[in-house]
Design a binder for these strands. Sequence first.
DNA 1: GCCAACGTTGGC
DNA 2: GCCAACGTTGGC
Length: 160
Amino acid sequence: MIIVARKYWLLKTEPGCFSIDHLASEPNGIAGWDGVRNYQARNMLRDDIQAGDGVLFYHSSVQPAGIAGICEVVRDGYPDETARDPEGEHFDPRATAENPIWYQVDVQFKSKLPRLLTLPELRDVPGLENMMLLQRGSRLSVQPVRPDEWKIIQRLIRKL
DNA sequence: GCCAACGTTGGC
DNA sequence: GCCAACGTTGGC
């Protein structure tokens, strides 16, 4: 018997580089989440994130930063080919076909929030105190989100 | 632009 | 394997 436990994640991106609008305008709203060059994040992309998982799409390095939309993982981790493109900005000369080093998933657009659910707002929400995003010095670009945190955030979104 | 936090690199 | 130096992230 296969038990599929749906999991939840937060994926960070700088909207100047790739925003929720970019994702929405892709064919079928599907894009590869590539270019991640951090081992902790890589491990989650490769091993933990699965098709069907829910994703909070987070805009970082903007004022204010915040959750911009919701998307869903539609493909499990697979080698990130941008690591092997010498012309690309995510090139890593160590990556080979046998040892790709870096991994990505594919995500599909679900919804764009009517407005950003901002970081300062999230900090004030009871129940989110332990959310990884809100911890000091937290800068992982791929973060697990607990089911209760996901639920609270879905409720906030409905009231936006 | 500043700077705290954290990751990576490389000499030893 | 330690750790100092350096690079990057990202909120402010």
